[in-house]
């Protein structure tokens, strides 16, 4: 059975190699056509022609964190559902009812988030 996982590893290695070779090749050819030395304006961050006022390492909206936290919670639930869904044929009605209870609790939590406004974006 492990025989089936070696090709995946080889595929990952080849995909990495393709990406790195393209990147190196393109950078090398590109450097050949580049105008050197590059001036300060060319190497500054794009800001519609202005000089950048400040660094971009700044504060950003906390809602992005909220989305990330909700993502982790729901993704774990998906991970929990996956093996159950595959084994659906073997676990019978008892397994079905157990998952109904779990999904019921999940739905209550989801409604709570909804009512609390955690899913709002404005």
């Amino acid at each position: 059975m492990l025989n089936n996982y070696l090709p995946i590893l080889i595929f990952l290695a080849i995909a990495t190699a393709v990406a790195l070779v393209l990147l190196t090749l393109g950078s090398t050819i590109g450097r050949f056509f580049a105008r050197e030395p590059a001036d300060r304006d060319k190497l500054s961050a794009y800001e519609c022609g202005f000089e950048a006022f400040e660094d971009s390492r700044m504060k950003f909206d906390v809602r992005y964190y909220l989305v990330a936290i909700l993502f982790i919670v729901f993704d774990l639930e998906i991970v929990f559902l996956f093996p159950w869904a595959v084994a659906l044929g073997d676990i019978g009605v008892a397994g079905l009812i157990a998952m109904v209870v779990f999904l019921g609790i999940l739905t209550v939590g989801f409604i709570y988030e909804w009512k609390k406004g955690a899913l709002e974006w404005d």
């Binding site: 090749l25 393109g26 950078s27 050819i29 590109g30 450097r31 056509f33 580049a34 105008r35 590059a38 300060r40 060319k42 190497l43 500054s44 961050a45």
Partner: peptide, 9 residues
């Protein structure tokens, strides 16, 4: 392929 890859400072 022939374009320069500019890395901002």
């Amino acid at each position: 392929l022939t374009k320069e890859v500019v890395v901002p400072s």
